[in-house]
Amino acid sequence: MTDLLLIALYALAAGAAVGGAGAVALRLLRRRSVAVHVCVLLAVTVVAVVAGVVTVAWAMFLSPHDLQVVLLTVAAAAVVSLGVGAVFGRRLAAAAMWAAEGRATERRLEAGRRDLVAWVSHDLRTPLAGLRAMAEALEDDVVRDPQTVADYHRRMRIETDRMSRLVDDLFELSRINAGALRLAVSTVPLGDVVSAAVATTAPLAAGRGVRVLAPESGWPVVAGSEPELTRVVANLLVNAVRYTPADGTVQIAAGVDHDDAWLAVSDSCGGIPEADLPRVFDVAFRGERARTPQRAGAPGGGLGLAIVRGLVEAHGGRVHAQNTHGGCRFVVRLPAAPG
């Protein structure tokens, strides 16, 4: 019994010494990664076992041969344990990193949702207040002049159209974010898509005195869904026309680069601040411009470019913005049609 007690004391003393050294090492490495901490903990455990075995073997006066066998056995177990620990530590560190990135992404999305709700509420409340005021004025015969009545009706229609577009954008964005978007992929000539988008944007461009220029030929063919691609180009054109000053020009170009087809919309808006370029495709981002539309054709709900990115990525493509001399350029890259 006395021998067993001495052996236990020797082992505890050796383990305590190694454990103390490990605690100091962990404190010095407290700012390092989770993988480093796991490896240090495993190394302390293995070294404590080795130290305990060596101490007990020395106290038991084992023969050199027996001591060598014990040490080789413990060393082999230590190598295996450290290898397993290193792999586990790396996986644990990767999992922790993914979890941190997931939490950061979730916080960004939540902040984006809050901003979206606040801005959309603001954009809906303002035209609704105007519609109510005009409707009450017409109902109470406060306004009787035919020209003023006609102007009220026109403004009511404009505000109603703007709210309808905002609701449509919200529905489209919710489909994209929910993964409910289903694309009917076929071979689509970009020339047809651009023609339809230009026709949709023509009234806005004519009202603002902006010229939309596009080549007559040389359009590539892509694999995609024509209605969604038409909306992509139309949103880019609307955005370009809205921010281009009167008598300005919006240009459309396209081509093929290796296995990708590209389409670019360039305007003369004066450029986007460099700090805002990475955020132009964020939901409800509208830069330094006023958030409240002041007239027909003024900046909308800040969802158009977010929808562009969602639809382009749903096609397996990508979109980016860059500043050019006197304006900016939005470039969409899509998979070219085979053959």
Rank of each mutant, 00 (worst) to 15 (best):
G287D: 06
A76L: 15
R291H: 12
T187W: 07
A35R: 15
A16M: 10
P127E: 13
A199G: 05
G287C: 07
T324G: 14
G271E: 04
L12I: 08
G270C: 12
A336I: 01
A337K: 02
A51C: 12
V38T: 12
L263F: 06
A11C: 13
P278N: 13
C328M: 11
A111F: 03
S121H: 14
D161Q: 10
L213T: 11
P299G: 15
R103C: 02
A93S: 15
A337P: 03
A133R: 13
D141P: 00
P220G: 09
H325W: 05
L229A: 07
R27P: 00
V233A: 06
G207K: 05
T187V: 15
G83L: 14
G191D: 08
N239L: 05
L29E: 11
Q68F: 11
A150Q: 10
A133I: 06
G22C: 14
A14Y: 01
C39S: 14
A184E: 11
G317A: 04
V221M: 10
V256M: 00
L72I: 04
A17G: 15
T55W: 03
H315T: 05
V185S: 09
G209I: 03
R329Q: 14
L116I: 03
P64V: 14
R279P: 01
F281N: 05
R211K: 02
G89T: 08
V54Y: 03
V280P: 00
A254N: 05
P215E: 09
V34G: 03
A234W: 12
L277P: 07
M163I: 08
L128P: 06
P245Y: 08
E101Q: 08
A135Q: 04
H320N: 04
R318V: 00
L311I: 06
A178S: 12
L109F: 04
G316W: 02
D141H: 09
L170E: 10
A223D: 05
Q68K: 07
L29T: 14
P299E: 10
A180Y: 01
A296E: 09
F171I: 11
Q147M: 10
V143F: 08
V50A: 15
A199H: 12
P64R: 15
V46E: 09
M1L: 08
T201F: 01
A254E: 04
L71K: 11
A202R: 13
A100H: 04
D169H: 11
